[in-house]
Amino acid sequence: MSTAIAAFNDHRTLTGPEKVAALLLAMGKPLASRLLKHFDPGELKTITRSAAALGAVPITALETLVEELAQQFSRGVDLRGTAAEVEHLLGGVLPPEQVAEIMSDVLGSSNSSTWVRLSGLPEADLAAYVGKEHPQTAALILARLTPEAAAKTLAILPRESRNALTRRMLALRPVSEATIKILENKLRDDLLNGPPRDAGANSQGRVADILNRMEPEQAEDVLSSIAEAKPVDAAALRSKMFSFNDVVNLPAKSKSVLFDRVPTEQLTMALRGTDATFRDSVLAALGARARRLIENELNGEGGSAKEIAAARRAISTTVLQLSSLGEIELTAEAA
Rank of each mutant, 00 (worst) to 15 (best):
residue 289 R to N: 07
residue 298 L to S: 01
residue 290 A to P: 03
residue 281 S to M: 06
residue 319 V to S: 00
residue 294 I to Q: 04
residue 281 S to C: 07
residue 294 I to T: 04
residue 296 N to F: 12
residue 318 T to L: 02
residue 318 T to I: 05
residue 322 L to Y: 02
residue 300 G to R: 07
residue 322 L to K: 03
residue 291 R to G: 06
residue 306 K to F: 11
residue 314 A to K: 10
residue 295 E to G: 08
residue 287 G to L: 05
residue 307 E to P: 08
residue 289 R to Q: 13
residue 300 G to P: 00
residue 318 T to A: 09
residue 308 I to A: 10
residue 300 G to S: 13
residue 301 E to A: 15
residue 296 N to E: 15
residue 283 L to I: 07
residue 318 T to Y: 00
residue 299 N to P: 02
residue 318 T to K: 11
residue 320 L to H: 00
residue 311 A to M: 04
residue 304 S to L: 05
residue 300 G to Y: 11
residue 282 V to L: 03
residue 304 S to C: 06
residue 295 E to V: 14
residue 303 G to N: 10
residue 309 A to W: 00
residue 316 S to T: 13
residue 295 E to Y: 07
residue 310 A to T: 13
residue 290 A to E: 12
residue 301 E to C: 08
residue 302 G to P: 03
residue 315 I to D: 03
residue 311 A to C: 06
residue 296 N to D: 14
residue 299 N to F: 14
residue 322 L to V: 06
residue 279 R to T: 14
residue 306 K to I: 15
residue 306 K to A: 15
residue 280 D to S: 12
residue 309 A to P: 05
residue 292 R to N: 14
residue 283 L to H: 02
residue 304 S to Y: 04
residue 298 L to G: 03
residue 316 S to P: 07
residue 295 E to S: 13
residue 312 R to W: 00
residue 290 A to G: 09
residue 314 A to T: 12
residue 313 R to Q: 10
residue 319 V to D: 00
residue 304 S to P: 10
